[in-house]
Each structure stands twice: as C-alpha cells, then as structure tokens.
Nucleic acid binder design. Structure first.
Lengths: 170, 170
DNA sequence: TAAAGCATGTAAGAGGTTACATGATTGG
DNA sequence: CCAATCATGTAACCTCTTACATGCTTTA
C-alpha cells in the first residue's frame, strides 16, 4: 500500500523523501514515518520502479520509471484490502483510472458502506433492547458509527452524482 | 492496546476467546484476528492478569484476576497513542474512569479534533487556491475530512453536554 | 450428510513504529 | 548563536494478519 502511494505521488512529479512524507500526510489519512518511507524508496529503486535524479544539496529526488508506471497501473486495478485507508488512497488516484471504470469503484464502495450501515444499525438497536446493559458511552459509540457511516454514504452519493454528470458531459 | 481491550471486556464478565473476538468486533472499530487474540490471552495469563476457569466443552472462559484489575486501572490512566481507535476504546471503558475525570478525557479529545479540523481546513483552502492542481477526487477527500471532523466534534459536544448534566445531577 | 458456524491454537511474515545517528540550512 | 526545520538513513522491535491445522456442533 505504501508502494502504491509512493508510485502514485511520484507519477505526478519527482519528489524527494521528505517531500513525499509531507505529500502523503497532506492527503490527510496517513502519517507515514521515515523509518518506513526510506526503506520503501530503496526497495522500489532496487526493483527498478523508481530512479533517483540527483536534486539540490543532499536531496534525492526520485521519479517513476516506465516499469514503475506500468506497475502502478496494475496496482490501480488490483482489489485492495477493503479498509477505509485503502479506499481513500484509491480515490486520491482515481484520476488515473479509466473514466468508464470510475463509477464502478465508487459504487463498490457504496455497497460496502451500506453493509457497514446495516451492521451498525443492528448493533445499535440490539444494544437498546438486548440483555446487555447498554452503557451510556458505548451507546454513543454505536450512534456515532451509524451517523458517520450515513454521512459517508451521503458524501459518496455526491461524488457519484458528480461522476455521472461528468460522464454525461463527455 | 489489545491487552487493554481484553482486560476491559473480561472485567464485565468471563468470556472465552471466540466470544471476546465478537465482543470486540461489536464495539464497531476493531476486527481483531484469532492469531492475535489467542497469543494475547496466553500472555496475559502467564503474567497473571487473567485466569482460565474451565467453561463448557472445549471453551476456556477467562476472568480477570485482582492484579489484572489493577493493571487495567493503570492502563485507564496512561495516555494513549492519540489515534481514533485508541479514543474509541477508552470511551468504551469510560464508565470505569472516576466520574470527575471523565469530562477531562472528553475535552482533551475535543482539543485534538479541533486541531485536526484546523489542519483539514487549511489543506482544503490551500488546495483550492494553491499552485497544485486541485484534483476533483482529492478535493472531495479533503472536504470529507473537514465535514467528518466537524461531525465528530458535534457528536462529542453532545457527549460532553450529557456528562455535564450527569455531573450536575449527582 | 454436507455445509456453516463454533472453537482453539501455531508459524511465518508483512508492515509498520520508535529510537538512534548525523549533519546542513534557515529564521528569530 | 540557538532553535527549529530540513534531510537521509539504520536497527531493533512490536503488533497484527494470513495461512495453516484440527476437530466439534448445529442446521438445512
């Protein structure tokens, strides 16, 4: 997943390690550490997916090679691990996915969120009427889960609507 | 963190491994695997924090020992790793925190979320007016982050209000 | 009677973090 | 000139997952 993120970010423009860390952090959902980032860069370089073009001073600006671009394209199509972070990362690179496939990615996510919502509602209702004593704080936790999943679906629906109108316009 | 969760859940009632996994999953934010859970149970048993009371069939129901109860109390006071999951877990056990300390826990979280919101808003505004081309999908990602953080703060405020009125009532 | 779920456990390894080490550059 | 930030890198370790192995019990 880190490799995927690195290749995607370097595809846009060459960047050195420190800058990559910031760019990744700026996406908002992943604060990667140097101890993880630098070894990953070396690994990707050894595999021939990126190469170092010497930058200013001690900076080592990396750029993607052609094999790296191909690898990134493959990773874009592989099904991820279904986590929130994975989806967010994929969304950050959805612009590289073929336009006619984008809607499918968003709709798959919507289905997963619907499932989550059903589960969350079930626990919430179950806790209110069940044998277990519904602790005040755990009830709040369950309610939050329901609400934030609903909000996520609503947000996704806006994205999907935007995607449809973009597809219609093209 | 897993140890903390296990001790907290076993404090309420004895449970065997399989049941613990479900109870943890039911909290909604952590689907722990058996490969992680069973070794953790053995470790906690070896440390004397939990003990196995033989259950029905091949089930091994564990319960917390007195040292385990003390350890849990310590962990409750230790400052966590500031992650969402850590807060949610602490909230699930907030009932075990002394009533006069609960508000502090919630307010610390509120401060952290406020910081996050500022950061999220900054990136959002920055992306709209900055030199970087604001990719449609990344903008959506940033907007989501702002919105969901706002929603989390609103939810927390309800909890805080409830806590205050509970404190006033007592 | 076969499938699905219940139940416990181990081994290998992925994927990450923290702490450490080093040193240049920039701003107050 | 001192602190903060920039910048790269290594080593030790930790946490958790996946895959495997085993076998019972319930239900369609």
């Amino acid at each position: 997943m880190l490799d995927f993120a690195i290749l995607g970010l370097l595809r846009e423009q060459p960047r050195h390690g420190y800058e990559l860390k910031r760019a990744l952090g700026d996406l908002g959902f992943w604060q990667v550490s140097f101890g993880s980032l630098y070894p990953a860069l070396r690994r990707l370089e050894k595999q021939g997916f990126i190469e170092a073009a010497k930058g200013e001073g001690r900076r080592k600006a990396y750029r993607v090679t052609e094999p790296g671009r191909i690898r990134f394209g493959e990773m874009l199509l592989e099904s991820g691990d279904d986590s929130d972070r994975d989806f967010q990362l994929r969304l950050a690179f959805l612009g590289y996915v073929a336009p006619q496939s984008r809607l499918g990615v968003l709709e798959d996510r919507r289905t997963a969120l619907q499932d989550r919502l059903h589960g969350a509602r079930r626990s919430f209702r179950g806790a209110r009427s069940g044998a277990r004593n519904p602790d005040r704080y755990r009830m709040a936790l369950m309610e939050r889960r329901v609400r934030s999943t609903e909000a996520d679906i609503a947000w996704l629906d806006e994205l999907i609507a935007g995607e449809r109108s973009a597809a219609a316009g093209a």
